Structure formats: C-alpha cells, structure tokens
Computed example of a mutant assay.
Amino acid sequence: MAYQLHPVQQPLALFDPLIARQTETLILREKVMSLSGDSFEIKLQSGHPILRIQGKVMSISGRKSVYDLNNNHLFDIQKEHFHIHTTFAAVSPSGEKLLEVKSSFALLGSKAKATFNNKYNNGATETLMMKGNWFDSAAEIVDQKNNAVVGRIDRKLLSGRDILFGQQTYALTVAPGVDMALMVAMCICMDEKNNEGKGGGILGSII
C-alpha cells in the first residue's frame, strides 16, 4: 500500500504545473543497456509519464537535461566542482541556479541538504533534508522549517511489474503541494553522489 503524506502548509515549488495535487508515487527506473544518452521518462505509478530526462554521454559534469511532456527544457542537473562536500545543482536554461544539493557525512546511510528559492514564499530560501539508507533505497525528505515529511523513497512500495530485468528502481512518494520535478531532481543528485565510481546508479545509465 502506498504512503499517504500530509499536504504541506505552503507549496514548495519551482514549477506550477508539476505540483502534486494529491499524494503521488513516481517510478524512477534505470534504463537498461543505455550507452547512447537516450531519453528516459519519469512516470507515475499508474504509468502516466510526467518528465523526460536526456543524458549527455560525453558530458564531463555528467549533465542531465530535464524536460516536461511539452518538451519545455526545465533545467539541467550537473555536478559542481571545487566544493569540500559533493555538490550538485539544477540550473535553468538561462543559467540561473534553481536548486543546490550538498551531501554530507552520515555515520549510517546517506544525508544531503537541498536549498532552493520557493516561488510560493516570495522567493525565500527553503531547505529540505534527505537522509536514509540509500543502499536499501529507503530515505525521507523533510522540510527543515517544520520537520514535515514531504517525500519518501522506498522500494518496498514496488510491485513485481515495476521491477524488471534486474533494473534498479525507486518508488518516490511526493506530498500534496510539493513540486514533483523538485523531488525528482533531489533523487537524481543523491543517486549520482552514491554511485560515483560505480559506473552509475539507477539514473546513472542515462548519461
């Protein structure tokens, strides 16, 4: 049974059309045998696609471009260098940094802090914390200002039809009022961090 998350008090968003209107579960699946940078769709558990990701095979920064279903280029996800802690950013086509995800050491599991300017709070900076056991594909995303859980990652939510051919697959549950593209971007950044030097992870094979 899927999680039911409480609606947030104020929307957390970068993009209006992609705000979850109810608790939504997204399926993020590795693209098997992809070496060409083919496009990849992020789908709801119902099978309805919501985002498309285009990887760049020869990109030094491992850049991934994210598009909506109308082929609008929303942002690129890329690694930033010269940071003490591994840092990724989502950058708009015009070069504006929309989201920064910075990992930090955790004794058990994984931990990362994401910051972005919330268009529903006069552009104020919001901070989300992601922590959990990434190797078991289980984590929570928490709004730091009120400790509300706004997202969960858990493979236990997946049915047999969601796990095919040994693919790494995540179920990402998003709370009502939260931007699904924002949550997907955080997951991609965290997955990239935890699979550095391993040949890519769930979404690493897109590039």
Results as ranks from 00 to 15, higher is better:
L182F: 13
I163W: 03
Q4T: 02
S137P: 01
K198W: 02
L12S: 12
Q45K: 15
S137Y: 05
V91P: 07
D179A: 14
L107T: 11
P93M: 12
V184N: 06
I84N: 01
T125H: 01
Q9R: 14
S36K: 14
N194S: 07
I60Y: 04
E192T: 05
N146I: 02
N118D: 14
G47R: 14
T173A: 03
N71V: 01
Q54W: 15
P49V: 11
D16H: 14
S65F: 05
A138P: 01
L99T: 09
M183C: 15
G151I: 00
G37Y: 10
K31S: 12
T127E: 08
G160S: 08
T115W: 00
L98R: 11
R52Q: 14
G95Y: 05
R21G: 00
I19T: 02
Y170V: 05
F15K: 07
Q54Y: 14
Q9F: 10
N122I: 02
G151Y: 04
K79G: 04
R29F: 01
E30W: 11
S110A: 07
I188W: 04
S92R: 11
I206K: 12
R52D: 04
A112C: 06
I84P: 00
S137K: 15
Q144L: 13
G123I: 02
N70P: 01
N70S: 12
